[in-house]
Nucleic acid binder design. Structure first.
Ligand SMILES: [Zn+2]
Length: 305
DNA sequence: CGCATTTGACCGGCGC
DNA sequence: GCGCCGGTCAAATGCG
């Protein structure tokens, strides 16, 4: 039930505007402080398990094994500052009863106008390989802006509207020649302030030391932390991890954001979910230091245009 | 002029 | 078998 479409209003205005962001930023620089961070990690062994799908389809009731070898700590709810929307970052409980489908407008011209001008598209690879089910890692970040800087260069190759989510999902691919890492970005249907970034694959190259002038330290912040946690799950994620950082001016205002890490692992039939709540300091993820400062000018410059 | 984004079409899987 | 849906391609467009 629930006409998901109508959800669009209130927040929709704020978020929906893609280009309008710029204006919005200038207009309300501090109205909604964006701050990180919440990360969710999930791994599909071979079944391609999406936590999104889990959320959407299975609802909050995860397939958690009763044994729950891992102590699941209920997030104390991110006690966000007063100004911000203090909501539990780990909002696993998404749409309840999301089974309704509101068919409003389909961009896809499957039916209806089937007037294709050109001709059949080129025959792509005959053997349509199903792509190795690479582990997927999802990060949840509170941010107004969708562009979260993670140090890599991405090329957008698609944008699609997903069901039960008024916000479109964007598909990116790493621009490096050999690197086939993909990433998709979307906003949480319930909390437009939350941006979920899902990475898929592993980079086969070092981080482009771009970002003019100052570059980030070669030591990835998060991996260290996870390296101790992941072994429990039975896979090495440390290689993939790279928490996106909201590239936002206002972000700087946030001193010590709360970091919530959640992991969902799927091994064959079993699924185990883990959640960690740690202060940012402990995670040391928030070593924004001078990095953001460097990015600032870059952002501003863009905004200007 | 090169490259990133935009955007509609197409495709393959899955459920009815 | 058809239609829904998520995912990808590629031509066109925009931007520096
Ligand atoms: Zn890459």
């Amino acid at each position: 039930m629930s006409a998901a479409a109508s959800v669009t209003h209130s927040y929709g205005d704020t978020i929906m505007m893609e280009k309008k962001e710029e204006e919005m930023r200038e207009a309300s620089p501090f109205s909604s402080p964006t701050f990180p961070i919440s990360g969710e990690f999930l791994n599909d062994d071979n079944g391609a398990l999406d936590f999104f799908e889990l959320l959407d389809l299975h609802q909050p009731s995860f397939e958690l094994p009763p044994s729950s070898d891992l102590p699941v700590d209920p997030p104390p709810a991110a006690s966000a500052t007063s100004t911000a929307t203090a909501s539990s970052i780990l909002s696993s409980s998404t749409e309840a009863g999301a089974g309704e489908e509101n068919k409003a407008n389909k961009t896809d011209g499957t039916s209806g106008g089937s007037s294709k001008e050109g001709e059949g598209r080129k025959k792509k690879k005959k053997t349509r390989q199903k792509r190795a089910r690479e582990p997927r890692v999802a990060f949840k970040t509170r941010s107004e802006v969708e562009h979260l800087e993670d140090g890599y260069r991405w090329r957008k190759y698609g944008q699609k509207a997903v069901k039960n989510n008024p916000f479109p999902r964007s598909y990116y691919r790493c621009t490096s020649a050999r690197c086939g890492v993909k990433k998709r970005v979307e906003r949480s249907p319930e909390d437009p302030a939350v941006v979920v970034t899902t990475y898929e694959g592993q980079h086969t190259h070092p981080i482009p030391a771009v970002l003019r002038g100052s570059l980030r330290p070669p030591t990835p912040p998060l991996p260290l932390l996870l390296s101790e946690l992941l072994p429990t799950l039975g896979f090495g994620l440390s290689s993939y991890l790279r928490p996106p950082q909201p590239l936002d001016i206002r972000l700087l205002a946030a001193p010590r954001p709360l970091t919530t890490i959640s992991a969902t692992a799927a091994s064959g039939d079993r699924r185990s979910q883990q959640r960690w709540n740690k202060p940012a300091e402990a995670a040391a993820v928030t070593r924004d230091d001078g990095l953001l400062q460097d990015l600032l000018p870059l952002q501003i410059r863009k905004k200007e245009k």
